[in-house]
């Protein structure tokens, strides 16, 4: 079994729906360096059966990810992180490296993210992933985001996943509606649709309802 062995409980599922709540806390150390801590939990709520969707709750995992970022210039940054995943009574470890850059445009921003990660779990071969994501940060009221205003973030991400000598791909489509509650707080709700297994003929479609909170304590 190639992809995401850590969520093996849902690996046979072709289509599923679920919840993906996230909390991200970040803090600047100085102009260049910042740290962040992300908590994320994945829970399946429905699965596709022959005659439609069936309610089928399953707690899948919880991740905790500290990330250290370095700002290179105006819109460019480098980051490294470590994710500890609690899944099915077992621990999964992941290291990540990323280069991200943001382009301000008239009335919106384009964010690019190149990320690589390596997942390790006892008794399984390491999983190596290369990822690229493009996001659009679009204020819905005016030219920029202000307190109390809404914004939209459509995004697409492509992943190439390798484990042992098997290669697979995953494509993600995201659409999030956000609101800036204050300069230190943002909330987002949205949909994250993930399509994978298409290179190993074990296709999966999974859709997650994202509930995200961003804090700068």
């Amino acid at each position: 079994m190639l992809i995401l062995a850590q969520i093996s409980l849902s690996a046979q599922t072709e289509q599923s729906l679920g919840l993906l709540p996230q909390v991200t806390m970040s803090r600047s150390i100085n102009e260049q360096w910042s740290v962040a801590l992300q908590l994320e939990s994945m829970q399946r709520t429905h699965q596709a059966v022959e005659d439609g969707l069936s309610s089928d709750y399953l707690y899948i995992r919880t991740d905790i990810t500290p990330i250290l970022s370095y700002r290179m210039s105006s819109g460019e940054s480098l980051a490294i992180g470590y994710m500890h995943r609690f899944v099915n009574g077992k621990d999964v470890h992941r290291t990540l490296q990323q280069y991200a850059w943001v382009q301000p445009k008239e009335g919106y921003r384009i964010a690019h993210r190149l990320r690589s990660d390596q997942t390790l779990r006892k008794g399984a071969s390491p999983i190596i992933r290369m990822r690229y994501r493009i996001s659009f940060d679009i204020p819905l009221e005016g030219m920029s985001q202000n307190t109390g205003e809404f914004y939209l973030v459509p995004a697409m991400e492509q992943l190439i996943i390798g484990q042992s000598d098997i290669l697979d791909g995953e494509t993600r489509f995201l659409l999030r509606l956000g609101r800036t509650l204050s300069v230190k707080t943002k909330v987002e709700i949205g949909l994250d649709h993930r399509f994978d297994g298409y290179l190993v003929e074990e296709e999966r479609h999974r859709s997650w309802l994202i509930l995200a909170l961003f804090l700068k304590p």
Partner: peptide, 14 residues
């Protein structure tokens, strides 16, 4: 002044 593009955690980190 150099423009520091801030407030990008929701674009880069999650």
């Amino acid at each position: 002044k150099e423009v520091l593009l801030k407030d990008v955690e929701n674009l880069n980190l999650n």
